[in-house]
């Protein structure tokens, strides 16, 4: 059995080096990282991401250097010459079981600390509560109004002008404000999103805020975060929901509480 192969080893080396250079060039040129951060907890996610990237990056380069080097270096001539007899080495194997395990457990523990902060801490009582009701293919955003309470809804009451089926006989519903696709949240103030869906599963994705949570019909899911940057951002759907999934666009506006209250009262008059 004769096989050529010097070229293949060389190609592996070249491919690895050129690929690495191309990646670095692209990273410098286009900076394709996360979108600019605009929430408090997002900083943790970004850090965890970067650290994981560094660790996995080292492992990636190390293993690939070995892989590429071995393919380049240990080409056989195919004449039946023997290779080095090395069937196992317990010590080595234990090392490369334990070391990754330790690193990984550390990552998990660190990740869980942040996870607990995001999900296991109750939002403060004065959190700004907004309800988002997904439908094909728009977001109904509801603000509770002055009483701070959401009125009853009933899907039987849904009409074109009452998209979430608000029960107007409920006193709590009187001052509820429902707008389409326009999510306004206060700056530097905790926000609690309550997510529901009218039809299929949607997922509220606020990339700048590192927020993502499914809106599942038949139940209410929540996500709380604190916006830290004023401005206008995107709201996307991240769970396949039908043919308009790709353009289920909402707008997030972060503004100081006072401005937000002015806007809310304007909306109330229009409603």
């Amino acid at each position: 059995m004769k096989t050529s192969g010097r070229l293949d080893g060389l190609l592996f080396v070249l491919f690895f080096i050129i690929g690495l250079i191309a990646c670095i060039w692209y990273l410098i040129r286009h900076d394709p990282g996360f979108l600019p951060l605009a929430s408090e907890h997002g900083g943790f996610i970004d850090n965890l991401f970067v650290v994981t990237l560094i660790i996995t990056g080292i492992v990636f380069i190390l293993t690939h250097v070995l892989l590429v080097f071995f393919t380049f270096r240990y080409k056989g001539n195919g004449n039946g010459e023997k290779a080095f007899w090395y069937p196992d080495n317990k010590k080595l194997e234990i090392i490369w079981t334990i070391v990754p395990a330790v690193i990984i457990v550390a990552l998990i523990v660190w990740g869980q600390v942040g996870w607990a902060k995001i999900f296991h801490t109750n939002p403060p009582d004065d959190a700004f509560v907004v309800e988002i009701v997904g439908e094909q293919f728009a977001w109904n955003i509801r603000y509770p109004g002055e009483d701070g309470e959401f009125g009853r809804t009933n899907p039987e009451l849904i009409t074109r002008t009452n998209p979430i089926g608000l029960d107007r006989t409920d006193p709590a519903a009187e001052d509820d404000i429902v707008v389409l696709n326009e999510l306004r949240v206060p700056l530097d103030h905790p926000v609690l999103l309550k997510l529901r869906s009218k039809d299929v599963i949607h997922s509220v994705f606020l990339p700048n805020f590192r927020v993502k949570m499914d809106a599942v019909p038949g139940m209410t899911t929540t996500f709380s975060f604190k916006p830290t940057v004023e401005g206008e951002f995107d709201l996307l759907c991240a769970e396949l929901c039908g043919l308009g999934h790709y353009r289920m666009r909402g707008y997030v506006v972060v503004q100081p509480m006072e401005e937000l209250e002015v806007w809310l009262s304007e909306q109330r008059e229009m409603n």
Partner: peptide, 8 residues
């Protein structure tokens, strides 16, 4: 139109 709920 599912994209624009007001259209009918």
């Amino acid at each position: 139109c599912d994209v624009h709920p007001w259209m009918s």
